[in-house]
Computed example of a mutant assay.
Amino acid sequence: MSAAPEAAEATEGAKGGGGKKKLLLIAVPVVLLGAGAGLWFTGILPGLLGMGPPPAAAGEGATAAADAAPRPPAFFDMPEIVTNLNASGRRPVFVKLRSKLEITRAEDAAAITAAMPRLLDLFQTHLRETRPEELRGSAGTHRLRTELVARANIALSPPPGSTQPAPRVTDVLFVEILVQ
Rank of each mutant, 00 (worst) to 15 (best):
F41G: 00
L49C: 07
G38C: 08
L45C: 01
G38A: 12
W40N: 02
G59H: 06
A56V: 14
G61E: 15
A74I: 01
P70F: 08
D77L: 15
L48A: 13
M51Y: 10
A64K: 12
L49D: 05
G47K: 14
F75M: 12
L33V: 11
G38Y: 09
D67T: 02
P46E: 06
D67S: 07
L32E: 06
M51I: 05
P54Q: 14
T42K: 13
W40C: 01
A65D: 09
L32V: 13
M78W: 00
G38I: 01
D77F: 10
M78V: 01
P55K: 15
T63H: 07
P70C: 05
E60T: 10
G61S: 12
A74Y: 03
F41D: 04
G52K: 09
F41E: 08
F75T: 02
L33E: 04
G61W: 03
L39R: 03
A35R: 07
I44A: 11
L49I: 09
T42Y: 07
P72L: 14
P79E: 09
E60L: 10
L45W: 03
L49W: 06
L48T: 05
G61V: 02
P79I: 03
P53C: 04
G43I: 04
L33H: 02
G61D: 10
A35L: 15
R71G: 00
A58D: 11
L45G: 00
A66V: 03
M78Q: 02
P55F: 11
D67I: 03
G50A: 05
P54V: 09
G38R: 05
D77T: 15
P46F: 07
G38L: 11
P73R: 08
D77W: 10
A56I: 14
A35G: 06
R71H: 09
P73A: 10
A66K: 11
G38M: 09
P46H: 08
L33P: 00
G61Q: 14
P72A: 14
G52R: 09
L49H: 06
G36A: 15
L49P: 01
T63E: 13
G52I: 05
D67L: 12
M78L: 14
F41M: 10
M51H: 06
D77V: 14
F41H: 14
A58P: 01
A66I: 02
G52V: 01
P46A: 10
P70T: 06
F76E: 01
P54S: 14
F75P: 00
G50H: 04
P53M: 12
M78I: 01
P54K: 15
R71F: 01
G38K: 03
A37E: 06
A65C: 05
A62S: 13
F41I: 02
P72C: 05
T63W: 10
P70Q: 11
G34L: 11
P73C: 05
A64C: 00
T63D: 07
P46D: 06
P55G: 06
G36N: 07
